[in-house]
């Protein structure tokens, strides 16, 4: 039962953190925007990082990747890392 309670607490904590990251990224993107919609590398890297953190939380806590077999953990986390790094590299070109 303790394990069940711990699991429930982890799920709730991950959900609250993901919602907080969502609101934070939306607020950051809104308050830093201008009428000319100028590009901002700092804001872009920040919102991508917050998005990646949310995806990591979903993979690890909701999809239980953190306790999955090594091959699955490596595949899921590797996919996310390669994708986010790829997006950042293409953005910075």
């Amino acid at each position: 039962m303790d394990t069940d309670r711990t699991a429930a607490r982890r799920i709730t904590a991950a959900w609250l953190a993901a919602c907080a990251l969502t609101v934070t990224s939306a607020v950051v993107a809104t308050v830093t925007d201008s009428a000319e919609h100028e590009a901002s590398t700092l804001v872009s890297i920040l919102v991508l990082g917050l998005g990646a953190a949310k995806a990591w939380l979903i993979l690890d806590e909701f999809m239980e990747i953190r306790v999955a077999p090594t091959w699955l953990r490596a595949a899921a986390r590797g996919w996310l890392a390669v994708l986010v790094v790829g997006i950042v590299v293409l953005y910075l070109q």
Binding site: T22, A29, T32, D33, V43, S44, V47, L48, G51, A52
Partner: peptide, 12 residues
């Protein structure tokens, strides 16, 4: 979706 949200809506 969370990645689409970041790339489509928030990337500056």
């Amino acid at each position: 979706w969370v990645l689409l949200f970041a790339v489509l809506y928030l990337l500056r």
